Structure formats: structure tokens, C-alpha cells
Simulated scan of single mutants.
Amino acid sequence: MNESGTRDWRMGRWVVISAILAVFFAAPVAYWGYQSFEERVDGQPPPEVVDPEPFRVPELTFIEADSSEVLLERLREHGGEQWPPDEVVPAVTAASFPEDLDEVDVQTRKEVFFRILTPIVLAENARLREARAFVVEAGARRDELEGAAGERLEALAEHYRVDLDDDDAIEVLLHRLDEIPPDMALAQAANESGWGTSRFTRQANNLFGEWTWTQEEGLVPERRGEGESHRIRVFPSLQRSVRSYYFTLNVGHAYDDLRDLRAEMRDEARELDGEALSAGLTAYSERRQAYVEEVRSMIRFNELARINGLRLDEVEHEPTQLAEAGGPDEAEAAGE
């Protein structure tokens, strides 16, 4: 073999080796990318995903009790006899509802329900409020952002499915990253969960009937139609269920009208009003407008607008873990 042939042979050998190495390293990367895509399509990020919002949520104290009566007594010890309080809600709640909640009288059931969920709803709104304030500030000096602040803005945009390269990116992000009125959240939670007594709330801490197609350990709906594969999503706590519900309303295409109504309230410097904002919930239930009127009726009958003016007693804070809540697409929004 002459010198030219030897050189060609060596080059051919390296081409083959390089191709083998490329396949060897690319295959797992491609597989990881495919898996990640599949999970993003479903809207539920894998549990190891780091929280994209390095903001802090008011720390809640979680108490336990064997019965509704005992739990209510302990909640009153921390928060006083009056409910709702005049201004400040104690940051005391429970991770789940007591097993006998469906066995107590209606008045006790409602008080337990509201005392547990109100601090959670207010805490989640505080987290969103802090994130929103950051976006407003970051948007005003976006060209100067660098380091952790820039990464934080990018993480928020990705999480809320906003392309930062768009000219109106900050405006769109603020349109999605906003609070949910406590009166509407509490009314929907009561409606969807049967005041905390439904099967999917008791067994899965699922307050809003959210579905999943990937969670193998999810609950199979009792009335699931033939050929359907969805399950009721399982949450580690009631707080995770509230956080996921907030994300669904803030990102799901089915709730564009709701976010538009909320933006109008912001533009007019009005307080967020759940009774008015519930007009954007027609897609949440197959009952459409009848469902909206039912939520509004619950807000009025239980005088839940009083909750909107309350603030959470904030003493300490802990980092959020929003990614664990995930973000279901609108197809997962409701229904057992």
C-alpha cells in the first residue's frame, strides 16, 4: 500500500470510529430529549426538576388530629374563635382533611374546610405576588439583567410558556403570572371536592378534580367511560393541589377569557373579584354557564368575598417547590 492509500485508510478508520462514538453518545441524549418532550406535552415535569421560581412562600404550620372536632379545636387554639378573622389569618393549616369530615354537621365541616384552605390559598397568592413583582422590576431593566436575575426571568418565562424573544414577552408573562381571588378558589374547591369529602380529595388530596394520563398510581375514576385512560391525579398535600390549580388557570388555553378579565381589573386598578372573574370558568365543567352560576352562588351564600381582604400572618418563609405541582394542560383541568 502506498503512502496515499495508507493515509486514506487511516482517515476512513477515524470516520468510522467517530460515527460509532457519535451514535453511542447521541442515543441516550436523544432518548432523554424524547422523554422530556413527552413529559412536557403532558404538562407534568419530572420530580427532579428544580423549582423554576426561586421565590419564597409564607411558611405554614401543619397540624394533625384524629377527628374533625379535635382538629377544629386545635385550629381555633392557633387562630381564635372568630372565623373569618377581621384582618389577619394565622398561618396554620393541615396537609389533608380528617377522615370523618363527611360525618360532622355542616357548620363544623365548613369551618374546618375554610380554616384549612384559606391559609393555603393566601400563601400561594403571596408566592405569585412576589414573582410578579420581580417580573415587573426585571422587565423595566431587561437589557441590564445578567447572572441570577436573568436566569430567574428565563426560568419563569419557560415555566409559564412564554417566549422571551417576543417583543411583548413581559406583558404576556404578567398576563399569566397573577393571583387567583381567594373567594373563587375556595368556592371552586368546595364545589369540586364536596367540601373536602369526595373520594378523590380524601384519597388523593385532589381538590379540583384534575386529571392525569401519565401518573400510573393515580386514582381510576369510578365513572370513567369505556376506552378512556385518564386518572385522578394524586397530590402529596392539599397545598400542592391548590398550586396546580393556580397554574392551570394561569396557563391553560381554555382560560384565556378569565385571564383577560383579570387583566382588565388590573388595568382599572380594581380588586380581583372572584364572582366577576368566574365568568371565565365556562370551560372548567361540561355544565358551562350553569357551573359558573353555581360557583357564584357559593361565593355569595358563604360570603366569601370577605376572605379577599384578609392577609396571611407571615413570620418566616421557606423556598417554594413549584415544579412538583406540575402544570396540567387544559384537557386535565376537571372531572371525575
Rank of each mutant, 00 (worst) to 15 (best):
Q188I: 12
A131W: 02
V41A: 15
P58M: 13
E217Q: 13
P85L: 07
N250A: 10
R233L: 12
R240H: 11
E64Y: 04
L156M: 07
P98M: 04
E48K: 10
V172M: 12
L174G: 01
F208P: 09
E151Q: 15
D165W: 11
T197K: 08
V135R: 07
R199S: 00
P221Y: 12
V16I: 14
W14S: 14
V57K: 13
S297Q: 02
R199G: 00
N302M: 00
A185I: 11
P54A: 08
T93C: 09
P119E: 11
V15I: 15
F134V: 09
I307W: 07
A133H: 08
H78F: 07
V234M: 01
G33S: 11
T61D: 14
P90D: 01
P328K: 13
L128C: 02
T212V: 09
L281V: 10
N125P: 04
E294D: 05
W211L: 15
P58Y: 04
F301W: 09
R240G: 03
R231E: 02
S278D: 14
D51L: 07
F235W: 04
W213G: 03
D273A: 03
A149Q: 09
P236Y: 01
V315S: 00
E294Q: 10
V29K: 08
G327D: 00
L21D: 01
V88A: 09
W211H: 14
D51Y: 02
L272D: 05
L312Q: 06
P52I: 05
I170Q: 05
R10M: 07
L261K: 15
A138G: 10
R202V: 02
Q215D: 06
S67I: 13
I116T: 09
V104W: 04
R56S: 10
A155D: 02
W9F: 13
R129E: 06
H253T: 08
A325G: 13
E293D: 14
M298E: 12
V315E: 10
D105R: 14
Y284G: 00
R142C: 01
R56K: 11
F301K: 09
E48F: 10
P319F: 04
E318Y: 04
S4Y: 15
P119Y: 08
S241D: 01
F114Y: 03
F200Y: 05
L153C: 05
P58C: 11
G196R: 00
E81S: 10
A19N: 11
N191S: 15
E111R: 00
T214C: 00
V162H: 06
P85A: 03
A290F: 04
W32L: 14
Q82K: 06
F134S: 07
P54M: 07
I299Y: 08
L258I: 05
W14P: 15
S297C: 00
N205D: 08
R176W: 07
A305D: 13
R306K: 09
A263Y: 10
L249D: 01
F25R: 07
E38N: 15
F114C: 02
D143G: 10
N250E: 11
P45R: 13
D273W: 15
P58F: 04
T320V: 10
H78S: 02
P328L: 06
R233K: 02
I17P: 04
I20T: 06
E286F: 03
A189Y: 03
N125D: 15
